[in-house]
Design a protein around this nucleic acid. Structure first.
Lengths: 261, 261
DNA sequence: CGCTAAAGTCCAATATACCGTACATATGAT
DNA sequence: ATCATATGTACGGTATATTGGACTTTAGCG
């Protein structure tokens, strides 16, 4: 059976995969790069990268910007993303819900989803206290680092979870390793409770609350989170959770109740 | 010069191009489609489309949705688009400008750009009179149909313009044909004036005003437009144009500055 | 000036991606 | 039952996309 993951062995890569690898890399870097730099940093043949970059430029998927031949994500991606957003029209409700959450709690409220096998903050509303949030909107973060992560993988089997999450993602920013079995236990606990809260492991001063947002099939499609100073979070725990659950109820698509036809 | 359009002869198409053709097609259709339908409607080999669709699904570029094996644009495209939007941070200013425009004029205000060789409304603010606007946000429209179109191609030579715009796009929705030479004359006039206005040719009751928004290199990167009832537009012509120019000045100065992470 | 490294272009070899075609399955009409 | 249409899968041939490497060009630097 082949290693279906990615660049294993010295096999030829498919253009499409390479192309999206380039796009993801640019997104992660969040800046324009020269084709040469891209090739070097993702470990792809330079000639291939040059050819692909030119193809993507002609399609408007990439654009020249930043001078010196640097390229970054292009306008066409914006249009495609806008079409997605328009189709799965979560944004409008989402903004309203986040605003209400932030107003009610004065804390930072986030709407989070999986991006492949990473966690990402899709939309965020800063709270009243402007303290430094460790993760920016759009950044990819290892799933085990986050409270939401426990909920976002809860629909999978333990085995699937461990093959889904890259092993190195269990290495916390502090350098310590999180025991995968402990993580799985937390996932199951979160699934039962319909929520997960903990003292953040990416910083030392916040407490995180996460509740699931389900799609029409009942799967966890996203999460709503609050990030609060620790003592504040502990003091208001029940109220914050109530606010979150209310908000999530508003966003979750009602699971199809069997009604008589 | 290569035939930059698409499937000309009976040559093999490149996977990447086919892939983005699929994505664009889905965007245009604005609904989930079965791979089979996609293949039939874009005139591509079914086996190729199935293979590409599966690849794109694996990458999160497409998603199953709508049941029956239908696919539509995927979450990853949303993330990539959001990264673009974040990098070229025009959205925030844009919304404010459109809001002010709509307030000042009570008409519908639009922010428009090129999407490949088509015109598209990127953001829109409805005016006080809610009359039916013919083009929705995100729809691709032939360049010659629009006032903005005159400005958006003004940086190109006449020759380039005629190879850039598909010939059939000079066929107006009424069925009449617009003389390309007449169009070019209007382009040059618009370039000189720094504006273009006309009675819409996609409907019979609106007057359109367009002014350019330039990037830091001075190229026309976008346009701001007003769509007004005809008599209303004629009556307020000078005032509306002043409002538009003011607004465009506000956007043109700081359009595309990459912001710090 | 050479010398080095980075950045981009060109080209042929070959692994393989694209595509035609056949096959499988379901549904519906006749 | 037979035919027709829509949908998805499987497979092999060949056109070609990917790739390593050679080759330019540009830039920095002692």
């Amino acid at each position: 059976m082949d290693a279906l993951s990615d660049d294993a062995g010295g096999k030829r890569a498919r253009g499409l995969d390479r192309a999206f690898e380039i796009l993801d890399f640019l997104r992660q870097k969040r800046q324009a790069l020269k084709p040469n730099e891209i090739a070097a940093q993702i470990g792809a043949p330079r000639s291939s990268v040059y050819e692909l970059v030119n193809l993507l430029l002609r399609n408007g998927i990439l654009e020249f910007t930043g001078g010196e031949g640097r390229v970054y994500l292009g306008r066409k991606l914006y249009f495609l993303g806008a079409a997605y957003e328009n189709h799965f029209d979560f944004t409008r409700e989402c903004e309203a819900v986040l605003e209400r959450l932030a107003d009610e709690t004065r804390e930072t409220a986030q709407f989070c989803m999986l991006d492949g096998n990473k966690y990402t903050v899709v939309r965020m509303r800063e709270g009243a206290r402007p303290f430094r949030i460790s993760t920016d909107v759009g950044q990819s973060v290892p799933i085990p680092w986050t409270a939401s992560g426990r909920l976002l993988v809860a629909h999978m089997s333990n085995e699937d979870i461990l093959t889904f999450i890259p092993p190195q993602d269990f290495c916390l920013p502090s350098g310590e390793w999180l025991d995968p079995q402990a993580f799985l236990a937390e996932v199951r606990q979160a699934e039962r409770d319909g929520l997960f809260t903990f003292n953040s492991i990416v910083d030392s001063f916040t407490h995180c609350f996460a509740v699931p947002v389900t799609d029409e099939e009942g799967h966890v499609a996203a999460t709503l989170c609050l990030v609060a100073p620790r003592d504040d979070g502990l003091a208001n725990r029940e109220r914050y959770l109530d606010c979150l659950k209310d908000a999530a109820r508003g966003l979750s698509h009602a699971p199809a109740r069997p009604k008589r036809s």
